[in-house]
């Protein structure tokens, strides 16, 4: 192993751990809240099962607004909210708050898009056999859209990794922050390059896993 990596071994391990924690919370938020939100966006659209102009417009505006913030500004903007929620706006835990919020908005949009790809007729067939809205969603929509949902989540995770790299501004740490402070600001270009390499490998692995899973799930 190169000397520069051995020299900072502890710091690098911590940075990787911090990145995993931040991305992990984002993924959880995306699945637990982004998936239902995206489904509601889809269902409240005109002509869909829970068509409701007010609900759709409100959610649509909310998701668009969150996604139109340059992420750095969103982090700063959310500092009071984060402080309210966790008592502090500094540190890895605090950094997960804005990350979770962008994760929910980001993935919900991709969920909506995936559900829009399901042929309308499949929903009609489900309704015609007496399915409730809940059954239509769980037993038909999610089944038919599953490879799209997986690919969307893969794209989202890659974005979350990218977002996590700037969390140094609120002391969130992570690989990106380490690369900037130890690599760039201390003129250790080699160290910075190694950090970038770690990110590249990470993204490749995630994309490969996501694409493979989506392909296996897709029987269309």
């Amino acid at each position: 192993m190169p000397d520069v990596l051995l020299q900072y071994e502890e710091e690098i391990k911590l940075a990787i751990l911090q990145t995993f924690a931040m991305v992990g919370v984002s993924v959880l938020a995306a699945i637990l809240l982004g998936l239902p939100l995206g489904t509601l966006l889809f269902l409240s659209r005109k002509g869909q099962l829970l068509a409701n102009g007010f609900v759709f417009s409100s959610l649509n505006l909310l998701v668009n607004t969150i996604r139109s913030f340059p992420f750095l500004l969103l982090v700063v903007f959310l500092i009071p909210f984060t402080r309210l929620l966790l008592g502090t706006a500094i540190g890895t835990a605090a950094a997960t708050v804005p990350l979770a919020i962008i994760a929910i908005a980001h993935y919900s949009r991709l969920v909506e898009q995936s559900l829009l790809d399901v042929p309308r007729g499949v929903i009609e067939a489900a309704v015609s056999m007496g399915a409730s809205t809940r059954e239509v969603v769980l037993k038909f929509l999610f089944v038919e859209a599953r490879s799209g949902l997986v690919l969307g989540l893969t794209t989202s995770i890659v974005s979350f990794i990218s977002y996590s790299t700037i969390m140094g501004v609120v002391g969130g740490g992570g690989i990106g922050d380490f690369a900037i402070r130890y690599g760039y600001q201390q003129f250790q270009t080699e160290l910075m390059m190694y950090m970038i390499l770690i990110m590249v490998v990470l993204v490749q692995l995630i994309q490969f896993a996501g694409t493979t899973l989506a392909r296996v799930l897709d029987k269309r």
Binding site: G121, E124, A125, S128, M129, G130, V143, E144, R146, K219
Partner: peptide, 18 residues
Amino acid sequence: VRQEIGMIFQHFHLVSNK
């Protein structure tokens, strides 16, 4: 009641992932 009324369509509308 819908369970007592079956329906089929021009484009079948099967779930392709089932």
